[in-house]
C-alpha cells in the first residue's frame, strides 16, 4: 500500500490533467485547482531547497570549515534581505533598490564576463574539435550571424541577393526545428513512462 498509493496519485493526477486537454470546458475548474496545488508545492519545494542551502552554510560556519567567511556573507545578506522583505514589502522603494542594485550589476557583469570567455572558447574550438563538419559550420554560421547583425547587408527587397540573404538567415531554423522536435519526443517519452509508472522519480527505490 505504501508503494501503490503514490503511484495511484501520480497516475490519477496525470490522467486528469491529460483529459483536461480534450475536455477543456468540463475539467477547467479541476485543472485550475490541481495547478494551484502544484504551484503551492513547487513554491514550498523551492523554500526547502533554500533551507538546505542555508543549512550547508550554517554548518560550514559552525564547524569553521574552509570558506566559512563566504558563508557568513551569504547568511548575513540572506537574513537582511528576508527580514527587510517581510517587514517592508517587495514594492517598498528601499527594498527594491537593495535587491535590484545588487542583482542587476552582478548579473550584468557576469554576462559581460561571458563575452570574454565565449570569444576565448570560440578561438579554441578548431584546436580542440579539429576540422569537422560541425565545427566548420558552427564558426561559419556564427560569423555570418554577426555580420548580418551589423545591418550593413541590406539589399533591395525582391532582389536575388535579398532572397539569398533571407534563405541563409532562415537556415538555422531547420536545426532548431529538429532539436525542438527531438526534445518534444524526449518529453513525451519521459512523461508517458512516468504516467505508466515505468519511471517513478518520487520513489526512492526506482
Amino acid at each position: 500500500m505504501k508503494k501503490i498509493f503514490p503511484i495511484f496519485i501520480a497516475i490519477g493526477t496525470g490522467l486528469t490533467v491529460l483529459a483536461g486537454y480534450f475536455f477543456t470546458l468540463q475539467l477547467a475548474p479541476v485543472l485550475g485547482l490541481l495547478i494551484n496545488w502544484g504551484i503551492v508545492l513547487v513554491g514550498l519545494a523551492g523554500l526547502i531547497g533554500i533551507g538546505y542551502l542555508l543549512k550547508m552554510h550554517v554548518t560550514r560556519v559552525a564547524k569553521q570549515q574552509k570558506g566559512g567567511f563566504y558563508s557568513v556573507i551569504v547568511l548575513v545578506t540572506f537574513l537582511f534581505t528576508a527580514v527587510a522583505g517581510f517587514i517592508l514589502t517587495p514594492e517598498d522603494a528601499f527594498f527594491r533598490n537593495w535587491v535590484l542594485n545588487i542583482i542587476i550589476p552582478v548579473e550584468t557583469s557576469l554576462l559581460a564576463l561571458l563575452a570574454v570567455t565565449l570569444l576565448y572558447g570560440s578561438l579554441f574550438i578548431i584546436r580542440s574539435r579539429g576540422w569537422t563538419p560541425m565545427s566548420v559550420s558552427f564558426l561559419a554560421s556564427a560569423l555570418a550571424s554577426l555580420v548580418f547583425s551589423l545591418g550593413y547587408l541590406s539589399p533591395q527587397a525582391g532582389s536575388v541577393a535579398a532572397d539569398w540573404i533571407n534563405f541563409i538567415r532562415r537556415l538555422p531554423i531547420a536545426g532548431i526545428r529538429g532539436i525542438l522536435i527531438g526534445m518534444a519526443l524526449g518529453g513525451v517519452i519521459v512523461g508517458v513512462r512516468v504516467l505508466l509508472a515505468m519511471d517513478r522519480p518520487y520513489d526512492g527505490d526506482k
Binding site: 501520480a10 490522467l15 490533467v17 518529453g187 513525451v188 512523461g191 504516467l195
Partner: peptide, 21 residues
C-alpha cells in the same frame, strides 16, 4: 512528490505534443 510528478509529466506530454510536435 508523486502528485508533482504526475502533474508535470502530464503537462510535459500535452505541452510537447500540442505546443511543439
Amino acid at each position: 512528490l508523486a502528485f508533482l510528478a504526475g502533474l508535470t509529466a502530464a503537462i510535459a506530454v500535452g505541452g510537447s505534443v500540442f505546443g511543439t510536435l
